[in-house]
Nucleic acid binder design. Structure first.
Lengths: 192, 192
DNA sequence: CGTCGAATTGATGTCATTCAACTACAGTGG
DNA sequence: CCACTGTAGTTGAATGACATCAATTCGACG
């Protein structure tokens, strides 16, 4: 299970086997059954998760009890509520398992020690932060500019494999529409 | 004009007059007439702006030529496209003046040297980044959860003074609706 | 095989857009 | 100083996009 993460790291930065062993000591492996909740709203997020197999999701629940998915994290993705973790304030996210999932959890000390073990990881971490910000911005602009159909097409284009694995109602939630609307959009697209 | 920024800094961090003089040397004062463009799409953003008087805005323009305002920056606000600046890639923002505006511009070296001059500024900068991220996330969730009326009420509540200064069509653009829709929302709110 | 949630479909409703007309007012040049 | 012009804001009518509610089918899984 750590192997997946090791491969991920090797693809991102120059790293030796002894360094990997040091890092492994900072990662806790876990398994979550489908539907299992890893983080609840109002909890202070204390870890970042790296998915090695399966899929996690983060989402918020609004006053009308509707879920809005913030992010999916399939294999080789990170997921967390960094804002809550960094500010040590209660978060607004739930994180749970979309499928049976294997993942590693890394706590605060991981991010302190990682750059000591591998200096180049600082740049990797910065890049991850930037990409996360970029993704938020892209979605915000897409919600302002695009129709639901455009957003769906964009989703299946940028996450083609996810679109096949994830229940449609979750894709709808991610896109900000109802499952019924997504079903109709798909129907109309299939007729060209 | 630098006085405004000095006051701002003093409210955020412990800072001495000699330190302020060093910082002043890194800030260029400017004036923009209403409508003047400070940054265009596809340019690489090379500076961050701090508004001392007036108001700037950042916005994107979609394929249908519609403007979507990302941020307003009245007095004591920062505005920029950090993502473009940090990655040195062409940006997607326009930045222009909503009113006649006085502002300071700070380039890359400002952010390198500031923490050398005032170590505590590192924390301030981190906090600014977090707040910017938080604002994006809040807006994203609001677009997913709230009606246009809710978003408008939220806007005038969190930016009461802005709502009076800014043309309604720009508020509409920020909220993601047409000026006509905002006009009707305001009318219906005035009848309770 | 039966059950329960996911997905589809239809009918209808609501919210926001679009297009057009009109008013108000600010800025410009004569 | 006034007339002209353009932009902002309002309003109406028609349209469009998506939501809601209800009924049905589909499909996974115990």
């Amino acid at each position: 299970m750590f192997e997946v993460f090791a491969t991920y790291l090797k693809s991102k930065i120059e790293i030796s086997d002894p360094q990997l062993r040091e890092i492994e000591a900072l990662c806790k492996p876990h398994r979550a059954e489908k539907g299992e909740v890893l983080l609840k709203v109002n909890e202070i997020c204390k870890a970042v998760f790296f998915v090695t197999h399966g899929c996690l999701r983060s989402y918020v629940v609004d006053k009308k009890k509707r879920e809005h998915i913030i992010q999916f994290a399939p294999e080789n993705w990170w997921i967390s509520e960094r804002l809550s973790m960094m500010s040590k304030e209660p978060g607004m996210y739930f994180i749970d398992a979309v499928e049976d999932t294997d993942y590693l959890s890394m706590e605060e000390d991981f991010f302190q020690k990682l750059p000591e073990i591998v200096p180049a990881s600082k740049a990797m971490n910065d890049r991850l932060q930037l990409n996360s910000f970029r993704a938020f911005r892209k979605r915000l602009i897409s919600l302002l500019s695009d129709t639901a159909e455009d957003r769906y097409l964009n989703f299946i284009q940028t996450h083609p494999s996810l679109a096949l694995r994830i229940p449609q109602k979750m894709i709808a939630s991610y896109l900000g529409i109802t499952p019924e609307s997504l079903s109709r959009i798909r129907k109309s697209l299939s007729h060209q």
